[in-house]
Structures are given as structure tokens and as C-alpha cells.
Design a protein around this nucleic acid. Structure first.
Length: 483
RNA sequence: GGCGCCGUAGCCAAGUGGUAAGGCCCGGGACUGCAAAUCCCGUAUGCAUCAGUUCGACUCUGAUCGGCGCCUCCA
């Protein structure tokens, strides 16, 4: 890797343009990604966003940046309270209410982390839970209060958006438009303006609460990201991301909270991932096309294929998830993995039709350059993968005719490692063979030598059911790979 | 009503002013005992429709049709 990493460009929601990412500190990236609200299983739409964030992070890392990544776990929120308090008696103590909430959020936090692992999503450096940052949130709200940007109504605290000129800059909303579109939340107490949002909610009967300068209550919907983001990543963050639906109100309100407190720009680059549809329709439980990762793996879907299917589409385009697409992804991965296995082996050229000789070193260098140029241009994964595939085609053809030497094969493998560090779908596989497989391969070799084709085919089929695919080579030897 | 996105082959999907990348599927061929893998050839005279700008448009402009999102639950 070069000492100064290459500049990568990303679409910035603030400006609605693809812009180079200029980190506050050269060679380092601070990244805040909005994590889950842990009250249920994540669905594949949620996971698309987390996969996109993983791609974002891995790309910067692979480019040579040191990435400091913070992903929050939101473990206090309306739906969490709704789903965790039902079994409690009306006079349950606050301790009991907190315990019930924690039981629910602990359970789904564990499940969430397992899902991330299944999909090859790297854990963040910081995964703070909102309930561990209540004091920081209170201090932040007090600070906003002191600056005249927050006001109290009946134990709740609201943000006065009229006090922040840049309010609306991310979502590109004007206040008039918001006024007419604003809905009324019957649960809310009186606010100065319907567009003001809540920072701290006064406790209602049956809800867990924390003590605060404004009486018992709990944090509002957006404050945790501001508090934890500033606490863990600082006053100037390079990248902040989430799904497009978070642009408004969540991220707009984070900006209001953080910049109202700091008095200057908090996040330089906001990046948002698009939604996902299923078989051309919105994903909805009522349509029966609502999937969690576990729904899919139970159907035999390979999580890596899902990862590939999602990452082979551009993150800013609506993705149409389909089972046909998943099959296509599996087959595309087979091609890359078979190529990897071929490069890991020694090669045995055998002629065949051939277009023209090529210099594999130069060809590889060109592919690598194109790959990075296209990734640097707003994470254009479809085109980056196209570069990889054309390289594979060219080198397969070359290797058919004149076997690449070990040194050349190793250079190709290094590039596969480099790209796999981003896509996490074609890693090196351990090459150990157990004795049983070894014996079967030998048995087939003997049957072949005796021209006992029926027996040879039977053994080959037996191995195939064990997940081992044999490939007879031109020179008479037999190779194998995992299916 | 306001703001915004999208419509490219059977499916997925880049390109975004200079004459349609790539993947999957499919057909033909080579190689093979047969396979597998791989290679070769083929598969959109056309990029929702119509009109315009231009020497030239999928790419710019306008209109139309269709799909989607946001406008205080939401990945």
C-alpha cells in the first residue's frame, strides 16, 4: 500500500454531488454508521444497509486508510418499550422495567451480532449502547438548553429548530414545506413549533425511566447518535452513514443537536444507502415477502451469495432482491472461486483456441488500476467486478495456452486477496484433504487406469455429494476443489 | 402540494455527447472415456415513449407513460 492512500470519492448527501473524501487527519477516517434498534430480527433491507457500510469501511481500509468505526446499538426506544413491558404488572418497579427492557435488547443484540458475522461484516471498533450514554446525552441537552436551542415543556425537552439557520440542509427541506407536511403526534406535549423535535421525553406511566434535571424520563429518538458520535469520534467526523430513510428526520436532527452544540460543521460527508425491494415489490409482512437473514439461510441460501448479490449492485440504487438473482450470484462466485483455486494450483497448459498472448503482469497491473479507479468513484462495485471478471477471462485463456509461472500466479492471488478484503466472498480455502477423500480419489484413479468408467464415475459422484468436485487435467493428473 | 430517484437484452447491471462493459441464463463448437473447469463463437441496429438541441444522443432539453422514496415510526 502506498504511504498516502488514494483519494476516494463518495456522493455527499449534503451537496448531492460525488465529492472527494478529504479526511480531517491524513490517512485516517472516522466513520459513524447508524446501527440497529434491537427489538427484533434485522431483515434483509436492514442488512443491505449494514452490508453497504461494511463495503464502505473495507474499501477505505483496503485503500490504506486507518478507519475508526463507531456503530451504535440503540437499546431504548418506543418499540423496545412496547415489546418489553407487556408482561409486567402495572405497578412494576423501575428496576423491573429496566431489566425487562435489557432482556429483550440483549437477546436481539446477540442475534444481530451473529447475523453480522454470518454475512462477513466486520465488527465496529466501538459499538456503544445508548443506555450506557445517558449522562453524556443529558450533558448535551443541557448544553443546548444553555445555548437557547432547547426548551422544557412539562418534563420533556424540545429542540428549537428556529434557532439553527442550517436546519434542513441535509434533507434539503424548507421550513414552509415542513409545516404543511408535518403530522401531529397526539402523545406529544405542547411544543413551540410542530417541527421542533424531542430531546428528552418525560416518563409516562408504565415506562422505564432515568433521573434527569427535568425529572424522570428517557432520551429522544436522535440524541444518542449525537452524544455517542461526539464522545467516541470527536468534534469533526469524516463520514456518517445510514439508510436513505434516515436522512430525515434522524440525521437532520443529529446535525441540529451536534452542530448546535459545537457551533461548527460536525460531519463532512454524509453517505446513504438505498432501499431494497423484493421481486419487484416493496418488502412487507403483509405481502409475504419479508425476509430476515435466518429466513433465507433456512431455505439453504448461502449468506456469502446474499452478500455478493447485494454488493454487486450500486449502493445508491434500489436493489431488487430475487431468488433468481441469488442463484446468479452463487454461479458468479463459483467462477471467481474456481479461478482462485486454479491460480493456487500449478497450472497445466494444453493448447486450445487462443486469441493472443498477453503479459500477465501488465494485464494484472491494468486491472488493479481500473478496479481502484472505479471503486474510488463512489464505490462503483458493478464496474469494479466487471474489471475482475474480464481479468479472469483473459488469464484463464492465457493459462490454458501457456501456464502462468508461480510468481505470476502469486501476484494474481495477491490481487484476489486485495479484492476479497473488500468483498469478502472469495477467500483462500484451506487445502487439507482428509484420508477418506484421498482414498476415494486414489480409488477413482485406479478405476480410470483400468478403464472401468462406471466405477470411476460412481466414485466421482460420491465425492461430489461430499462437496468435492474433481477436475481431470490435461496432463493426466486429477485436481479437486470444494463445490 | 413540495423535494428527489429510477426505467439499458430472459434476469441482474455499468456506461451518461462519439457510436452499447461485465455477470447469470440460453444456443453452437473445442477440450474430455464421460464429466467438471476452461476457451472460442453467437445472443439489444438499440438503451420506457414522443419531440427537440447537435455533425453526432442511451448520454443534453422538454413533454408523456410507468415504478419508487422522503416531507417527524422506518435501513
Amino acid at each position: 500500500m502506498p504511504k498516502t492512500p488514494p483519494t476516494l470519492s463518495l456522493f455527499n448527501t449534503l451537496t448531492r454531488q460525488v465529492e472527494p473524501v478529504r479526511p480531517v487527519t491524513e490517512g485516517r477516517i472516522s466513520l459513524y454508521t447508524c446501527g440497529p434498534t434491537v427489538y427484533n430480527y434485522a431483515h434483509i433491507g436492514n442488512l443491505r444497509t449494514f452490508l453497504f457500510q461494511d463495503l464502505l469501511k473495507r474499501t477505505f481500509r483496503a485503500a490504506g486508510y486507518q478507519v475508526q468505526h463507531c456503530m451504535n446499538i440503540t437499546d431504548v426506544e418506543d418499540k423496545i418499550i412496547r415489546d418489553s413491558q407487556g408482561a409486567l404488572a402495572a405497578d412494576a418497579s423501575n428496576e423491573e422495567r429496566h431489566a425487562a427492557m435489557k432482556t429483550l435488547t440483549d437477546r436481539f443484540t446477540t442475534i444481530f451480532l451473529e447475523d453480522l458475522d454470518t454475512l462477513g461484516i466486520l465488527p465496529a471498533d466501538h459499538m456503544p449502547r445508548a443506555t450506557d450514554y445517558i449522562p453524556q446525552m443529558i450533558r448535551l441537552i443541557q448544553d443546548l438548553e444553555a445555548k437557547g436551542l432547547a426548551y422544557v415543556r412539562e418534563g420533556s425537552v424540545y429542540y428549537r429548530i428556529a434557532g439553527l439557520p442550517q436546519y434542513g440542509c441535509l434533507a434539503h427541506l424548507d421550513r414552509e414545506g415542513m409545516q404543511s407536511g408535518a403530522s401531529v403526534d397526539a402523545d406529544e406535549y405542547e411544543r413551540d413549533s410542530v417541527t421542533d423535535f424531542v430531546l428528552w421525553k418525560a416518563a409516562k406511566p408504565g415506562e422505564p425511566w432515568w433521573a434527569s434535571p427535568w425529572g424522570p424520563g428517557r432520551p429522544g429518538w436522535h440524541i444518542e447518535c449525537s452524544a455517542m458520535g461526539m464522545d467516541l469520534l470527536g468534534d469533526r467526523v469524516d463520514l456518517h452513514s445510514g439508510g436513505v430513510d434516515l436522512i430525515f428526520p434522524h440525521h437532520e436532527n443529529e446535525i441540529a443537536q451536534s452542530e448546535g452544540c459545537l457551533g461548527h460543521r460536525w460531519v463532512n460527508h454524509w453517505v446513504h444507502g438505498e432501499f431494497l425491494m423484493v421481486e419487484g415489490q416493496k418488502m412487507a409482512k403483509s405481502l409475504g415477502n419479508f425476509f430476515t437473514l435466518r429466513d433465507l439461510t433456512a431455505k439453504g441460501v448461502d449468506a456469502t451469495a446474499l452478500r455478493y448479490a447485494i454488493q454487486s449492485n450500486h449502493y445508491r440504487k434500489v436493489l431488487n432482491f430475487s431468488f433468481e438473482g441469488l442463484r446468479g450470484a452463487e454461479n458468479a462466485l463459483k467462477r471467481i472461486r474456481a479461478f482462485r483455486a486454479r491460480m493456487e494450483g500449478e497450472g497445466s497448459a494444453g493448447g486450445g483456441p487462443w486469441k493472443e498472448a498477453l503479459d500477465s503482469t501488465a494485464r494484472l497491473a491494468q486491472a488493479r488500476e481500473s478496479f481502484w479507479a472505479t471503486m474510488a468513484d463512489d464505490l462503483n462495485t458493478p464496474e469494479a467486478l466487471a474489471e475482475l471478471f474480464t481479468l479472469i477471462s483473459d488469464l484463464n485463456a492465457q493459462d490454458d495456452h501457456v501456464a502462468l509461472i508461480r510468481e505470476e500466479r502469486d501476484a494474481v492471488l495477491a490481487f484476489l486477496d486485495e479484492t476479497d478484503a473488500i468483498f469478502a466472498a472469495w477467500p483462500h480455502q484451506a487445502h487439507g484433504l482428509d484420508a477418506e477423500v484421498e482414498a476415494l480419489i486414489e480409488a477413482r484413479r485406479a478405476a480410470k487406469a483400468a478403464k472401468n468408467w462406471a466405477e470411476a464415475d460412481r466414485v466421482r459422484e460420491q465425492l461430489r455429494t461430499m462437496g468435492i468436485v474433481l477436475e481431470d487435467r490435461k496432463d493426466g493428473s486429477t485436481g479437486w476443489r470444494k463445490a
